[in-house]
């Protein structure tokens, strides 16, 4: 987990509000079924990431998210028993039985895969631009023990990543015949996680965090235009998604046959949704970049 000083409202706003904005984005991705609506949200994530200077992180994350999405499409196509439009007959397979690939199963898998990509990229945007330290501080104020556990977990990831990078580099520097196998390397990193967790917990104790809940009085911090902007954007996103769901503008189902809503409502949703989400990021005053 890392935090990044970016140059948009997402980094300038209070962490709680920026987290709500990212959470709204993920919730919308999990609520909307229509692939066109999901593509609109994907456009919003990429646009926001680009504006926030997190394009490189999103590109890196997509290298893992895309293969994962393809795997979801493939598995769903194989295991799905729904759908009437058979596009390939694979015959009898031991254990699995008769396998037919249907268009509906493939399309539903594609929607799931798209959702995986979307949620992954939104999560990466969240870790890249939201101040994790401030967020952990908020958690600690509510519950000291939970905050401690969250801090250890948060610290563990970069420590293990650094261990992995060092071990991989060391492996490259050793003569090939003497180098440990990849399996041993991964196993060593995994078994080292316990040591690293103990290190992180010890460090937190030495900073005085094990002494019970932190009840530091907070100074009043006035709400900035970025706080308001992101909160209004989140509320507007919720309103658009709710209206689209109630109005049936983003209806989509692929259980037995493929049926999708097409029309002005859908067109309005896919245009308005990204604009509503990205609009506050164009406010550059006071972002410190």
């Amino acid at each position: 987990m890392t935090s990044r000083t970016g140059t948009t409202a997402l980094s300038a706003a209070r962490a709680g509000v920026a987290a709500i904005w990212c959470g709204t984005l993920m919730a919308a991705a999990l609520t909307i079924d229509h692939p066109v609506g999901l593509f609109a949200l994907l456009a919003a994530v990429i646009w926001a990431g680009w504006l926030a200077g997190a394009g490189q992180q999103l590109r890196k994350a997509s290298r893992f998210a895309l293969p994962l999405a393809l795997m979801v499409v493939g598995v769903n196509a194989i295991v799905s028993r729904d759908g009437i439009t058979v596009i390939a007959r694979l015959g009898e397979i031991p254990v699995l039985g008769r396998l037919d690939i249907t268009l509906e199963g493939l399309v539903y898998g594609a929607v799931l895969g798209l959702r995986v990509v979307l949620v992954s990229l939104a999560a990466v945007l969240f870790t890249a631009v939201v101040d994790q330290d401030e967020l952990l501080g908020l958690v600690r104020r509510r519950s000291g023990r939970f905050g401690l556990a969250a801090s250890v977990a948060g610290r563990l990831m970069p420590l293990l990543a650094a261990d992995g990078a060092r071990m991989a580099e060391a492996r490259r520097a050793v003569p090939k015949t003497l180098a440990v196998s990849r399996f041993d390397l991964v196993s060593s990193i995994a078994t080292g996680a316990l040591d690293r967790a103990a290190d992180a917990a010890a460090a937190l104790e030495l900073r005085g965090l094990g002494e019970g809940p932190c009840l530091a009085p907070r100074a009043h911090r006035p709400w900035s235009r970025h706080d308001f902007g992101l909160l209004i954007s989140s509320m507007a996103c919720c309103a658009v998604v709710t209206a689209a769901l109630i109005g049936g503008w983003v209806d989509f189902q692929s259980a037995s046959s493929i049926r999708a809503a097409w029309g002005l409502g859908l067109a309005m949703t896919v245009v308005v949704l990204p604009l509503v989400l990205v609009a506050p990021l164009f406010e550059r005053r006071g972002v410190g970049g």
Binding site: T2, S151, A203, R207, E211, P217
Partner: peptide, 17 residues
């Protein structure tokens, strides 16, 4: 344990209230 230097230095002070 934190992500930025400022947060790292603030942590022990915050944890003492």
């Amino acid at each position: 344990v934190m992500n930025t230097v400022r947060a790292e230095l603030a942590l022990p002070l915050e944890s003492r209230g």
